[in-house]
Simulated scan of single mutants.
Amino acid sequence: MHFRLIYPQKHGVKPVWPYLNEARRTVWPEGDEALMRPIYTVRTIDREARSFDFDIFMHEGGPTANWAQRVEEGCEIGLLGPAGGWMPKADHMLMAGDETAHSGHRSYSRTSACNDNRACASQS
């Protein structure tokens, strides 16, 4: 399961949220009010606490990593989703990606029909 994390592109700017125009199409803010909307994978869900965890890979120059380093408690953000996909039915599956794909790979390997952890490897 994944979602979009939505936050202002410029630091310190109060978010201006998208809206529907007269033609019922979504209008996203532009220019100084533009929003970032990267996709993240849900790592865990705590239904009782009504919360979930996700990972942000902290690397130099990454827009969300930069945001995460300077964000302050209480700032206003948006979430779009959740969304889910399908998992192919297979006896074996090879997934490849850089460090930022780790959460997705971990989530898929837990929920796939091919979840023999002895065959799973992760390298950072």
Rank of each mutant, 00 (worst) to 15 (best):
29 P>A: 03
45 I>A: 04
39 I>L: 11
43 R>E: 14
35 L>H: 07
59 H>S: 01
52 F>K: 08
27 V>P: 00
48 E>L: 05
46 D>S: 08
31 G>W: 06
55 D>Y: 12
53 D>R: 10
29 P>H: 00
30 E>D: 10
60 E>H: 10
46 D>E: 11
32 D>G: 01
26 T>S: 12
42 V>F: 11
23 A>K: 14
29 P>M: 04
58 M>V: 00
40 Y>D: 05
56 I>N: 06
56 I>G: 02
48 E>W: 06
60 E>N: 08
28 W>C: 05
35 L>P: 03
48 E>D: 15
26 T>K: 12
22 E>A: 13
23 A>W: 12
60 E>C: 00
44 T>N: 12
46 D>A: 03
19 Y>G: 06
34 A>V: 02
38 P>V: 05
26 T>F: 14
24 R>F: 14
59 H>V: 03
27 V>Y: 09
32 D>H: 08
42 V>T: 06
25 R>Q: 15
43 R>T: 08
44 T>S: 12
46 D>I: 02
41 T>K: 00
39 I>M: 12
24 R>D: 15
41 T>V: 02
34 A>I: 01
29 P>C: 05
24 R>K: 15
24 R>A: 13
33 E>N: 12
27 V>G: 04
53 D>P: 04
56 I>H: 07
41 T>E: 08
30 E>N: 07
